[in-house]
């Protein structure tokens, strides 16, 4: 049995908006073990985003315990959380969130400038990671010179550069067409195969079916967990899909 990388015990989060208290999470227990590929699903207002923010150490819970690699991160302050995010969490966002003024290389490099330990052969490693997500030759391009799919690949390379414990992807295919989305899912599946722990937040069921386990969230509570015995293989799906060029040609 692989060890639990994420252990949440009775996590609750209450927001105060003016005089109203909003209970976004009301006691979530959740375990994710090393090397797992899990998706978290739920309609808007289910507490999905709040849970993601907590998993990603962007926020601290109101109550409950959250252990990330046996570190109790629920008790840490802002700066300690920043250090955890930097070394243990790799974020991939729906809107990519690249810095528009920086090149592919610089965007991938960004987490390393806040990294405490010196990375050996940093440039070489950055080039390698860019190549791994299929962007060789686009190191100098700015985000606006890249397609949506390419931007998300940059974001994935950036998420990986500090060798994080978990990859946290928030609707990573939400802004992409289905083929490009499938390509991104293929990258995630490949990374998972290589041993990365990936947590995917989505509201699309067919995307969630690419993962091994789906956690359903509603009104701040986990209502159901589902094991996917045979996840959708993105590579195979891709092979069946028409190529972009074909589509463009048929349109023309």
């Amino acid at each position: 049995m692989a060890k639990n990388i994420i252990r949440m015990e009775q996590i609750a989060k209450t927001y105060r908006i003016g005089k109203i208290q909003v209970k976004a999470l009301r006691g979530v227990d959740m375990n994710i073990s090393e090397g797992e590929f899990v998706s978290i699903m739920g309609p808007s207002g289910s507490g999905k985003s709040t849970l993601m923010n907590l998993i990603g150490c962007l926020d601290a819970p109101t109550s409950g315990r959250y252990y990330l690699e046996d570190i109790d991160v629920s008790q840490l302050n802002d700066n300690q959380l920043a250090a955890i995010r930097n070394s243990k969490v790799g974020f991939v966002f729906q809107t990519f969130n690249l810095l528009p003024r920086l090149s592919t290389f610089q965007n991938v490099e960004l987490p390393t400038i806040y990294f405490l330990d010196k990375i050996k052969n940093k440039s070489k490693k950055i080039y390698e990671y860019i190549e791994n997500v299929g962007l060789k030759g686009k190191e100098k391009n700015k985000p606006n010179e890249l397609s949506g799919g390419e931007r998300q690949r940059v974001a994935i390379a950036r998420a990986l550069i500090n060798d994080p414990t978990i990859i946290l992807a928030d609707e990573p295919t939400g802004n992409l067409d289905s083929r490009t989305g499938e390509e991104i899912m293929a990258i995630f599946q490949q990374l998972n195969k290589e041993g990365k722990t990936i947590i995917l937040v989505t509201h699309e069921l067919d995307i969630a079916h690419h993962t091994e386990r789906i956690i359903y969230l509603r009104d701040g509570l986990i209502i159901k967990e589902e094991k996917i015995d045979k996840p959708v293989n993105a590579r195979e799906t891709l092979a069946k899909m028409p190529k972009i060029e074909d589509r463009i040609n048929s349109e023309a």
């Binding site: 990603g56 962007l58 802002d78 700066n79 920043a82 250090a83 995010r85 930097n86 070394s87 974020f91 969130n97 690249l98 810095l99 960004l110 987490p111 806040y114 990294f115 950036r158 500090n162």
Partner: peptide, 16 residues
């Protein structure tokens, strides 16, 4: 603001 958010998400401390 967004840039600051991104930087913080990937590990920039307040001091950074």
């Amino acid at each position: 603001t967004r840039e600051i958010g991104i930087r913080k998400a990937i590990g920039a401390k307040n001091r950074d």
